[in-house]
Amino acid sequence: MREAKFELKDVTLKRPGRNAAGEITTAVILNRITTSFPRGEITAVLGPSGSGKSSLLRLLNRLEDPASGQIILDGDDLRDLDIFTLRRRVGMVWQLPTLFPGTVLENITYGPRLRGIAPAQARARAGELILMVGLATDLLERPADSLSIGQQQRVSLARTLANDPEVLLLDEPTSALDPTAAANILHLMVDLKSRLGLTLIFVTHILDQARQVADAILFIHHGEVVEAAPARGFFTAPRDPRSQLFLAGQLGG
Results as ranks from 00 to 15, higher is better:
Gly40Phe: 04
Arg123Met: 01
Ala126Val: 02
Thr98Met: 06
Thr85Gly: 11
Ser54Gly: 02
Val45Glu: 15
Ser36Gln: 15
Ile108Phe: 03
Gln95Ile: 09
Arg62Gln: 11
Leu56Pro: 11
Leu86Arg: 11
Pro119Phe: 03
Ala67Trp: 10
Gln121Phe: 02
Ile33Val: 14
Gly40Cys: 09
Thr85Cys: 07
Ala122Val: 05
Asn61Arg: 14
Phe84Gln: 12
Ala120Met: 03
Glu106Ala: 03
Asp65Ser: 15
Ile108Leu: 05
Leu73Met: 08
Leu140Asn: 04
Ala67Ile: 01
Ile130Glu: 00
Gly127Gln: 13
Leu96Val: 10
Pro119Gly: 03
Leu96Glu: 12
Arg115His: 15
Gly116Gln: 10
Gln70Leu: 08
Gly22Glu: 01
Ser36Asn: 15
Asp138Met: 03
Glu128Ala: 02
Thr25Leu: 10
Ala120Val: 13
Arg58Ala: 14
Thr137His: 01
Met92Trp: 05
Leu140Thr: 06
Arg125Gly: 11
Ile130Gln: 00
Glu64Ser: 15
Ser68Gly: 09
Leu30Gly: 10
Arg79Cys: 00
Ile33Glu: 04
Glu141Arg: 13
Leu129Gln: 05
Arg89Asp: 11
Ser54Lys: 01
Met92Pro: 02
Arg62Cys: 11
Leu114Trp: 08
Arg32Thr: 09
Phe84His: 14
Gly52Thr: 07
Phe37Trp: 07
Thr103Phe: 00
Gly22Ser: 03
Gly111Gln: 07
Phe84Ala: 12
Glu23Cys: 09
Val11His: 13
Arg79Lys: 12
Ala118Trp: 00
Asp65Glu: 15
Gly52Cys: 06
Gly50Val: 01
Arg142Trp: 04
Ser36Phe: 14
Arg32Met: 06
Gly50Arg: 01
Leu96Lys: 13
Leu56Ala: 12
Ala122Ser: 10
Leu131Trp: 00
Thr137Trp: 00
Ile33Met: 13
Phe37Ala: 12
Pro66Trp: 07
Thr35Ile: 09
Gly47Gln: 09
Glu23Thr: 13
Pro112Asp: 11
Pro112Arg: 05
Gly102Thr: 04
Gly102Tyr: 05
Glu128His: 03
Asp74Met: 04
Val93Gly: 07
Pro143Cys: 11
Val133Gly: 00
Leu63Pro: 00
Ser51Asn: 07
Leu13Asn: 06
Phe37Met: 05
Ile24Pro: 08
Ser49Gly: 10
Ser51Cys: 09
Gly22Asn: 01
Ile83Asn: 03
Gln70Trp: 02
Ile130Gly: 00
Asp76Ile: 12
Ile130Ala: 06
Thr34Gly: 12
Thr85Ile: 11
Thr43Cys: 12
Ala136Arg: 08
Gly111Met: 07
Leu140Pro: 02
Leu114His: 10
Thr85Ala: 12
Ile42Arg: 14
Leu60His: 14
Leu63Lys: 01
Leu57Trp: 04
Ile83Leu: 14
Lys53Ala: 07
Pro101Ile: 02
Arg15Lys: 15
Val104Pro: 05
